[in-house]
Structure formats: C-alpha cells, structure tokens
C-alpha cells in the first residue's frame, strides 16, 4: 500500500485538520472532528446535513458552505458516521427551520441517520439518494445505491435552502431531483482501504468492473477492458433506459472520476458520452467534470445524467461557495 500518510489510525483526523486549515474561510471543524460545518450558519434557513463514510472526498465535506451543505459528518473510511455525529452537527447548525438529512442509500448510512432522525429534537426530514442503476440490490443496500448523483441533489437543495425554501418543500424537491438522476460507474483498478492495507478486490490487467460501487463493491459483471466508446455506450445506455428520457430533453451531465483517473481521460469520456447522448437527441445543458465522488485512489469513472427542468437548472446555476464547488461568488 502506497499512500501519503503517517498512521492509518490518525489519517482521517490529520486530513480533516488539513482540510479545515485550507478552507478556514468557509468551514469550521466540530469538536473531535465529528462534523464539518459552514463557518457562519444562516439564521432561519433549513439546515442541510449530509455525511457518510470517508474516502469519497470531496464528498461530503467539500460541499459544505454557502449554497450547499450546512454540515457534513465524516465517518471512518467507507463506514457510515454514527448518530452522535449527526446529532452534534444538527445542534451546531440548526437555527429553527429544521434539519434536512441527505443520505446515500446504504444500509449503514440509512440505519445511522434513521437513529439520528429519531433522536434529534427539531423538525426534520430525510432525502435518500439512490441514483446507481448498476444493480437493483447490492450487498449493502436494500434497493439501489446512492453514488455521484448525491452531489447534484446536495447542490440543488443547497440553493433552494439558501433562498429560504421550507423543510417540506425541500424534501419534495430532493426526492424529485433524485428520481430524475441516474448514474453508473466502471472501475479499472481497485482501491485500498488504508487500515486493511491491501486492495479491496483483485482485478486482472485486462479486466474492468462494470457497474462498480463507490466502495469498490462488485457491480454488474467483470468484463474485458473495453474502449472508452464502448464503456460510454454501456454506462449511458443503462442510464437512459432507467430515466426513459424523451428526445429533446435537456440534462446535466456529470462525468465523475473515482480518484485515480486523470482529467485527460475524464474529458475523453465526456466526448464519448456526448456522442451517445446526441444519438438519443438528448441535449446536455450543463456539465460538471472532475473527481467529486471518489473511492480513494480507484481508477475509473461514473456517468451521471440528471434530467432537470428549468427551475432546477436555475438552482444548479445559483451561486455556491464550498471547498470543491464554487461559482457565482
């Protein structure tokens, strides 16, 4: 295992300290690193709280700030945070308008957030993200997994919360965006959980894992390494089938790297996906390309298509100022 670390036991807290130092203008670190919160909460605004296992950076901590999350709870690597963390975060950022939890659909995340939701003593709702079309059920979910589409749900909800939308309306919006969003990924290499010290899965030099999860969980099938066009075809095809878009539909396209894939290849994938979408008369109205929802240093990428209406696109375009996403301010 080759990583820039001192000690697997302290790596998470050291990284959080570095993150907090690098972005001290926008975030603050909760006690004992239980959560990252927006430096100055906005009174009267619904507090958006997300979180999940670490190792997917910049998700979620990198999305804390104006126009996106109020707090994010980082769990251990690939391990959901605990209800304590969510409670502490809620206490820190809730200002009277209630809390909206944004949760990726994994058993662990679901159970921990559910416990927190039961224990928190303010009004709250939960939006569950399950955008991964690769598999209907996975080892650790009931139903589809939540993957890169989470970013889109968080961004759009963040903008709506920022302008003052109330809790129930946000819950509805979140569910709608999640429903309009579909993703699928492919891995070329495995990631290595630091404390485990060896790769999560073995994969041949000429193989890829089609439909991989963002923890390196198995996907649809292990197949021979294919060209970018073929990969784009399979990923985008599965997504389009799931969303059943009409010709002329406008979408947001997110080509997301898993951590070990350079921009050169991600943009090449953008080009490949474009060709497939054009073939289906789907119009790409917005783009995001980069490594935003990662699996440590895994090589590979996911494609996310989100069929947004004009109002949702306007929320996507609204100003945001976080460590990893910033525009309009």
């Amino acid at each position: 295992m080759k990583k820039l670390i001192n000690d697997v036991e302290t790596m998470l807290s050291e990284s959080l300290d570095g993150f907090a130092a690098a972005h001290a203008d926008i975030v603050a670190l909760g006690e004992a690193g239980q959560f990252v919160r927006r430096r100055t909460p906005k009174p009267g605004k619904v507090a958006l709280i997300s979180g999940g296992g670490s190792g997917h950076e910049p998700l979620h901590t990198g999305f804390v700030g104006h126009g996106m999350l109020d707090a994010a709870c980082p769990g251990q690597i690939f391990t959901s945070p605990t209800p304590d963390q969510m409670l502490a975060a809620a206490q820190s950022v809730e200002t009277g308008a209630g809390v909206l939890f944004i949760v990726k659909n994994y058993s662990g995340d679901m159970m921990n957030f559910q416990m927190a939701a039961e224990m928190v003593d303010c009004d709250n709702e939960t939006v569950v993200v399950n955008d991964d079309v690769a598999v209907e059920n996975s080892t650790y979910t009931t139903g589809r997994r939540g993957v890169a589409g989470t970013l889109i749900v968080e961004k759009i909800l963040g903008a709506a919360a920022e302008r003052g939308d109330p809790l129930r309306k946000l819950k509805q919006l979140g569910d709608a965006v999640n429903k309009a969003t579909a993703s699928m990924g492919v891995a070329l290499t495995s990631c290595t959980v630091p404390a485990a010290g060896k790769p999560t899965f073995q994969i041949g030099g000429d193989e890829m894992e089609m439909g991989v999860g963002i923890h390196g969980e198995p996907g649809r099938r292990r197949i021979k390494l294919a060209g970018a066009d073929d990969i784009a075809h399979e990923l985008t095809g599965a997504i389009l089938k799931d969303l059943s878009l009409k010709a002329g539909q406008q979408v947001l396209l997110l080509v997301n790297g898993f951590g070990g894939t350079p921009m050169l290849e991600l943009y090449l994938m953008v080009n490949a996906v474009h060709k497939v979408l054009a073939g289906h008369q789907v119009k790409v109205a917005r783009h995001l390309t980069g490594s935003y929802v990662t699996s440590l240093e895994m090589a590979g990428c996911s494609v996310t298509v989100s069929a947004l209406d004009d109002a949702q696109l306007a929320l996507w375009d609204a100003p945001v100022h976080t460590a990893a996403l910033r525009w309009g301010m």
């Binding site: 769990g75 605990t82 209800p83 304590d84 662990g108 159970m111 921990n112």
Partner: peptide, 12 residues
Amino acid sequence: CMSTIGGSSGPV
C-alpha cells in the same frame, strides 16, 4: 457500539 462503530455494524 452505536456511538463508536458506525457503518451497519454500529446500529446493528
């Protein structure tokens, strides 16, 4: 367990 483990094992 609930406050230190996280993941599925913590709640379970």
